[in-house]
Nucleic acid binder design. Structure first.
Lengths: 229, 229
DNA sequence: ATTCCGTTTATGTCTAGACTATATATAGGG
DNA sequence: CCCTATATATAGTCTAGACATAAACGGAAT
């Protein structure tokens, strides 16, 4: 009686994980459950909606709710600013700008960001250090057609990442992870051997349909990205 | 008038992304918004709750709701079964078991999974192919204390991943991504050069407090894991 | 000044009831 | 036998109102 939506949620969850309700099976409808738990239907609804969001059950009008045959396994990563990532470890953060230039966007970038021919882009290469040791190498391109104010921004003290977050805080992104080999330049930046395997993140971001930036972040050897689910 | 929670959500969202409500600023309380949109407070509440879940706003009792100074950027990955990953590309999936043995769990594994001394583990090495080409190498350890039935399972036709999903469908996991170098054995399995950089996923899973499996998945060179957010 | 405590305020949750939307089942017509 | 209306079951959402809970605030006692 008087169950909260959390009670209902965890009870249903335990019925599922314990195997009491088998994968693929239909579970009682909201009205029945509301009677069982002695609460309003809205309460059951919220519990079930959250379980559906978590990928454990599947709900369809009229057809009812069933336990997913194979639960969707999904991992959620927080993508922090490098500065935070480093400071959260208790290390001291340092930033340095290695190079800055305005270039005609190369073909691969124009394809990636759907830019017109001959579009100008600001090309930045930066390093992020943790307690003085190389932590992350940043190779960034900024679309000057969409962000002309980047031309006058000073990236010598503040990284482009932080500048972008404060300039266009809300954007959509495509992110991809891979492994790459340290070439001579990267090896020098990251103080590692040429040929070392490096964890790499590439991210392209859009705001209101326009691509504004593409970045390749390369981490020092041994870096791991971890999460629980 | 008569706004749905989606209307409210998207209107608030646009006020935020357009900069009408600046990062860090306080936004009107639920009662005021309900009046503004001509709907019940519960409707505004749901809209705001979802925006908070999405990491765009921060809510605190009594203090009110404010636009996050720097929005939490989070990526969500679906972790598919390899078979699905391959079949979804339209490629033909093939599985093969390379080796199977029961061993005393090595120290690193005992630490990783919090196993007792001298615990037995089933060690499997498998390969997953897409259209005949090596796609993923799987190096898996299964805790036989928790899953004794794995001793008698036949992994020659069905991969351990699929067996585990049907045996213990609901579990918590710790997952981590990194880049590793192809040693001679891996290079042979994946038909690539020794020294190639390989994208690696490690996953440990628990069920009701007990660790049941640890796996290292190594992808063929050039593999990317991509998502949008 | 500092600590403690009650007040106030905004969010968090629950309820009972209503209406809506959608997928399924069924019956009737060609 | 197939197609098409119609009925029906179930989830999805909204409402008005109530009470719960956390946290900020202000004043009182130290």
């Amino acid at each position: 009686m008087n169950a909260t939506y959390k009670d209902v949620k965890s009870d249903i969850l335990s019925k599922i994980t314990s195997g009491h309700w088998q994968p693929g099976s239909l579970i009682p409808n909201e009205i029945e459950l509301a009677e069982t738990y002695g609460c309003a239907r809205a309460t059951v609804n919220r519990a079930m909606r959250e379980l559906a969001d978590d990928g454990l059950i599947e709900r369809r009008r009229k057809a009812g709710t069933r336990v997913r045959a194979s639960p969707i396994r999904q991992a959620r990563f927080d993508i922090p600013l490098v500065r935070r990532e480093i400071e959260d470890k208790g290390a001291e953060y340092r930033y340095s700008l290695a190079s800055r230039s305005i270039e005609t966007a190369p073909d691969w970038l124009r394809t990636r960001l759907q830019l017109g021919q001959g579009a100008d882009a600001l090309h930045l290469v930066c390093m992020h250090y943790a307690d003085g040791d190389p932590f992350q190498h940043e190779d960034r391109w900024i679309n000057l057609e969409v962000l002309p104010q980047a031309r006058d921004a000073d990236f010598s003290q503040v990284g482009p990442n932080e500048w972008l977050v404060s300039t266009i805080p809300f954007s959509t992104a495509e992110i991809s992870f891979s492994a790459t080999l340290a070439d001579r330049a990267l090896a020098e930046y990251l103080a590692c051997d040429t040929g070392a395997p490096l964890f790499t993140v590439e991210r392209a971001t859009w705001f209101e349909g326009d691509a504004n930036t593409f970045v390749r972040l390369t981490y020092r050897p041994g870096h791991r990205m971890t999460t629980r689910y």
